[in-house]
């Protein structure tokens, strides 16, 4: 999985591509977990190129949401495919994010 983090229109944007499986989780956690503190405003996670996510990936997203909420910021998901959306729905995570 590849992760790139950019500033776009004053927002922090994380672009995820590939498969967010358990093996990729440690690396992704390292890249993503500082975001709620670093970001000035809301965090946009661009999933347009993300094919797959396992529960270990969800766990990392949950941590980001918790921290962002505490800091008064929103976490917005963008371009979520059907498979990932189903996973978010099944786990109730769909209520934790804003979507674009």
């Amino acid at each position: 999985m590849e992760i790139s983090i950019q500033e776009m229109d004053g927002r922090t944007v994380a672009i995820l591509s590939g498969e967010f499986d358990t093996a990729a989780a440690p690396e992704a956690e390292q890249a993503l977990s500082p975001l709620p503190e670093q970001a000035d405003r809301d965090i946009l996670i661009d999933c347009t190129k993300l094919e797959y996510i396992a529960s270990s990936g969800l766990r990392i997203l949950l941590n980001i949401v918790k921290k962002a909420k505490a800091a008064g910021k929103r976490v917005i998901l963008k371009g979520v495919n059907d498979v990932i959306r189903e996973v978010l729905e099944l786990t109730g995570f769909i209520k934790l994010f804003d979507f674009e």
Binding site: S55, L62, V65, G92, L96
Partner: peptide, 24 residues
């Protein structure tokens, strides 16, 4: 099974895996 109706701050990460397996 985990309670999936809780808000983010109250959610714990456990139990999601088997929930997904059973659902899918």
């Amino acid at each position: 099974p985990p309670d999936i109706s809780l808000p983010a701050e109250d959610r714990t990460p456990g139990g999601l895996g088997i929930l997904l397996a059973k659902s899918l």
